[in-house]
Every structure is written in structure tokens, then in C-alpha cells.
Write a protein that binds this DNA or RNA. Structure first.
Lengths: 131, 131
DNA sequence: ATATTATTAGTAATCATTATTAATAAGTAA
DNA sequence: TTACTTATTAATAATGATTACTAATAATAT
């Protein structure tokens, strides 16, 4: 006997993330699913997103006033534009990943499970507008 | 003519950060300064900390449910213990800083001003307790 | 010293998130 | 299929962090 249940709400919310790869907030997800499923509760969205990230099925990103959610669970990092707040995924190549791993092993005071890297600056479009 | 004023409150709050290098939240700072200056307002603490970080005099850290503030403005990164929530400063040596700079220059889609890195795992003490 | 106005204290308002609770429905067993 | 157990949900209240508001205060230019 399994103590979790497969519900329509969980499927809807998970699918929403799969179809909206823009790092939406819980509020964003609620607004999207609300269009097609107007009686889904906001608390359900928060709870399901929270549970999914606990289970490692999605990632919770905490570099903003409200948390954002990412269906991409492969190791990657983020760039945030200071002007338009756009978020761009940053993947490291093999060489960089190796460097990062080596670096993490140089610490004796702690063991590292997760690494979050956020780059901030101006995206291409906003650089143009700045001139 | 300067449109900002040097107030006792600003000095008290800035000094508080200098004397409490534990990455306190705004609430923490309020509680500390409140002991010696009971009529300082919580809104003032929030406003002054926000202004100081805008001016680059302190750093605002956003890896928690509430923002934390750091008087150390030299480039450095952070480790957060998942168990006891302790925060440890992580400084990169010259070699690593150079690697990071090189990496940042490989992007054509954006320019990078700031880089925030948060490592998460277990600190030495909590690793022991885990066994 | 006076005038101007940036800043503050105190508090209300807002925003994001979590807790509560009665109703619902997923999974199990009869 | 039907009944049963209880995880999950909808709706909403409560909480916690932060910001907005406003009259009073005090830093600085004149």
C-alpha cells in the first residue's frame, strides 16, 4: 500500500511546468492552470510544487522575492537580467563541471550536495536599450 | 547640495552589521539594535538596509525565506548547512577567481556584473551528528 | 536662527506562503 | 461493484516578511 495518491491536480501542475519553461512562480502556475481548471486551489498549487521539489522531480529557485520552479532537474545554473528580470539557463560544459567538482572537494569543513549559481547583469536586448 | 542625510539610525544599523558578521536578517538587526536603541523603528531598519545594499555598502543575500545582510563586500560566496542552517563564507583563491572570470567572458548573450554562488550540504558538526 | 525637506517612528497595508478544516475522491479490500 | 479508509483538495483564515503611509522630527543649506 502506497501512502501517496495520483491525483488530477498533481498531473495538471506538473504538466504546466513541462509546458512553461520560464521558471514560473507558484502564482504564475496558479494563473496558468486556473484558465483551464478554474476550481483548482492556490494552496494546492503551492503544496504540490513544494512536494514535487522535495521529491526532486522539479527544482525550486530562490533568487527572487518569490520562489520560482524549474522542470529542468539536470545540473545547470541561471542568469537573471537586472533590467527585464528575464531568466536564462546556463549549462556548464564538461571541463567546467569538472573544475567545479574539484573545487567542491577542496573543502574540509563541509560536504557539498547542491550548488546554486546565479549570474546577474544585462541581457543582450537590455544592453542595446541601455545605449 | 547632497540630497541624503547622515543620521544616527544609519550609523547604528551599519555599525550593527560590522559587529555581527553572522549574516543577520533585517529582523535580527532590529532585535539587536532595539536593545540599545529601543525607539528605532523596524521600518527604518528595513529601509536603511535596503538603501545600503543599493549603494553597494553592504550585500543582500537571498537564499533564505527572509533576506540576509552581509557587511563583507569583497567578492565571496556562501555555504549553507541544510541541517543547522549555519552560513559559512567561501572565498575563492586567485586561480579560481580567474577561472570564474574566464568563464563569465564566454557568454555572448549577456554581460555579467554579479555572481552569487550558494553551496548547500552538511557542515562538519552536522556530519558527525548524522552518524 | 530659520527654513527646507530628507528621514524617522509608528502603524496599516500588502504580498507570499502556510495552516486549518470539512468535503472529496484515490486506492484497497470485501 | 460497493463500501471503507484516509490522502488530498478547495476555500479561506492565519502567519511572516516587507513595503507604504503619514505626521512628527531633525539634518543641512541659507
Amino acid at each position: 500500500m502506497n501512502n501517496t495518491r495520483e491525483t488530477l491536480q498533481k498531473k495538471i501542475i506538473f504538466d504546466c511546468l513541462k509546458n512553461n519553461k520560464v521558471h514560473p512562480t507558484a502564482e504564475d502556475v496558479y494563473n496558468i492552470v486556473h484558465k483551464d481548471y478554474p476550481n483548482i486551489s492556490k494552496a494546492t498549487v503551492y503544496r504540490v510544487l513544494s512536494k514535487l521539489s522535495e521529491n526532486g522531480q522539479i527544482r525550486k529557485l530562490d533568487f527572487d522575492t518569490s520562489s520560482r520552479f524549474d522542470d529542468e532537474i539536470a545540473p545547470h545554473y541561471h542568469f537573471v537580467c537586472k533590467r527585464c528580470n528575464k531568466i536564462i539557463d546556463v549549462f556548464l560544459n564538461e571541463e567546467r563541471l569538472t573544475q567545479l567538482d574539484e573545487f567542491k572537494q577542496t573543502f574540509n569543513d563541509f560536504s557539498i550536495d547542491d550548488t546554486e549559481i546565479v549570474f546577474k547583469g544585462l541581457c543582450k536586448d537590455c544592453q542595446k536599450k541601455e545605449n
